[in-house]
Design a protein around this nucleic acid. Structure first.
Lengths: 352, 352
DNA sequence: ACGGATAGTGAAAACGTGTTCATTTTAAAT
DNA sequence: ATTTAAAATGAACACGTTTTCACTATCCGT
């Protein structure tokens, strides 16, 4: 086994391995491994030599081999129904940046359009031995995930303090959670709309199976009651522009006289605004006031200039990464909860 | 080695491995491997038994172990400067769907804001042993990529027939390419603008280092000349809404009397439109006509209703996946080229 | 019934890495 | 100078899989 590999090596410039570097540096292969692990003890000059030769050869530790023994793939799975959706693409972007800085890469998986997951896909995902999983698709049950996903611990995002879904009594597994307090921001929104004279409110929902939507609707109704306002009209939606547009047209076909619409997301609010302005000949904000949720980049564009409830994206991603890293460092640590606030961003769709 | 693993197994429910399945099914581990490889020869009833037991145990072949010996990671890298950019997020979405169907997962990497890549990141990427790489960031030179990326063969997207960047004479490596013929669509756009009376054209560029932008500008100027029109004014841009807005304001500050603006991308066109309508008090399309490029979903929204040059996303992704799979099947196949057409989508920003 | 081809099978050897463990070298402390 | 602790080192093993390579059972046609 001393000269044999050279024959193959002569044929093609084979990928440099730790052994290649070790022989060239006159050290053992273990030393090469240690050179790439900052915490391992290795004489400084020897490490420098190894790293120098490694760079010349273009050697990089192979993740597959490393994953096999360390049981760390350095891969974080992101399950998402639709990458194009602005809020989600913004979060994926920020998440990728943050994780990349910590030495992890994000692996993208798409659910079916109904946000459910193929059995085949789950099996497939398991094979990658993901270090962590973030489920944007809220139609994937925690138990399904843990059952199908080896050692990776999913992180769940809840939208109310009482944690409506994960950590059920029946389930043995405990999840780290990020709780988003949506009520504060929504209350500010309703207060502003009320101050500008709204009397008849409507709530345009997102996908009905979405946890975020369920809690937004609940919070909205609760606030209406607290402020002594009548129960709002609820429009069916699915977070898309097209459906929002159609639902708004339907709403005003029966002439309800609604003068304040709160949408479960910004893209939906765009649909509402365009329906009002271009199809119904109504003015925003003079005739109807509109508020969205998310504060995506497009909400600042002048054509919409949308007043909206903001979840601070950087805070959110920072919290997620913190949870992921902590769980990775100590898999047996007790479940942890991070909390996030929301606040109203005032622009031009309620009053000037 | 017969009873030893059971001790560990008793402690925690260890991840099921091929050996676990093999022992339970009373076959060799090789049989298990074959059961999961459809092309391997294995008695049907034995395969069924193995797959059944595997499902009960929740066993899935480990990708790391598999990658080590097959030299196929089933990972496709996507290098992108900004996931949020609508066109790119749409393409990532479609690509992920298509690749997922073929058994590959997409791994996301972000460049720095100047679209260049950290040396550290390249080294890092190499470690994942990617099966293929698609570079959305056009500031990463082909040679840098091939030098730093083991056996993965990058796919390049060019925007002119003469292939301005890859396959240079100096470079030894040959790349598969996807050529987008932008001229046809741009010519249709100019023709329409001209028909509606445009006399003074301006071109709002994207990032100057972007290949797509360079070729779009070249094609636009060429068409202007062919149609006997004067050289267009060129505005600096970077594909963002904010810069487009600012550039448009600058343009009309000197009162050039421009009546037709062609933007290198749709998001830029949105900035142009909003500057004209909300800051300069001009009407679109009556006073100034605007055309974009890409045909992202937002271009159909009524507030913009943008006339734009479309690259068919599904065709594009289909072609990319075709190139990737072909290269993977035969790494030594000669370089291949796919070509894509563009065409104008007429909406409301040129004339009704 | 017989030869030959074919499908089915498992033992052993990879693939590239991190980690134990026992050993040697170096540094620090008396 | 001598003891004690700490740091540095490499051999062997482990991780989970696929791929040779022989070998056996099964099938077909004359």
């Amino acid at each position: 086994m001393s000269e044999h590999p050279n024959i193959q090596e002569a044929k093609r410039p084979e990928r440099a391995t730790a052994d290649t570097v070790a022989k060239l540096a006159g050290v053992s292969r273990v030393a090469v491994s240690r050179a790439f692990n900052p915490h391992a003890s290795l004489k400084k000059e020897k490490r420098d030599l190894i790293l120098k030769i490694a760079k010349e050869l273009g050697y990089t530790p192979d993740m597959a081999g490393r994953a096999l023994v360390t049981r760390r793939s350095h891969l974080v799975g992101v399950i998402v129904p639709d990458v194009c959706s602005p809020w989600e693409s913004q979060e994926i972007d920020a998440l990728t940046t943050a994780l990349q800085g910590e030495g992890f890469a994000t692996l993208l998986f798409k659910t079916r359009t109904d946000q459910s997951m193929d059995e085949r896909l789950l099996t497939y995902m398991k094979g990658f031995n993901l270090d962590s999983i973030i489920a944007f698709a809220e139609n994937v049950s925690p138990d399904t995930l843990t059952h199908s996903l080896g050692r990776a611990v999913p992180i769940y995002v809840s939208y109310s303090e009482d944690g409506s879904l994960p950590n059920q009594p029946g389930s043995t597994s405990v999840f780290d959670r990020l709780i988003v307090d949506q009520k504060t921001g929504i209350d500010q929104a309703v207060a502003l709309m009320q101050a500008y004279g709204c009397r008849n409110f409507a709530y345009l929902g997102g996908t009905t199976t979405s946890l975020a939507n369920t809690e937004r609707e609940r919070a909205f109704k609760c606030i209406m009651k607290e402020r002594g306002l009548p129960d709002p009209l609820v429009l069916q939606g699915d977070y898309t522009y097209e459906t929002a547009l159609a639902s708004t047209l339907d709403l005003f076909k029966v002439g309800e006289g609604v003068d304040g619409i709160f949408s479960a997301n910004d893209v939906g609010a765009f649909g509402v605004i365009d329906a009002l302005r271009f199809q119904l000949g109504l003015r925003v904000p003079e005739d109807v006031k509109v508020v969205g949720f998310d504060d995506i980049a497009q909400s600042g564009w002048l054509s919409y200039n949308l007043t909206t409830v903001k979840i601070d994206l950087e805070d959110r991603v920072r919290a997620l990464v913190r949870l992921i890293l902590r769980r990775l460092k100590d898999p047996n640590a007790p479940a942890m909860t991070e909390t996030l606030q929301t606040r109203l961003i005032v622009r031009g769709t309620v009053g000037s």
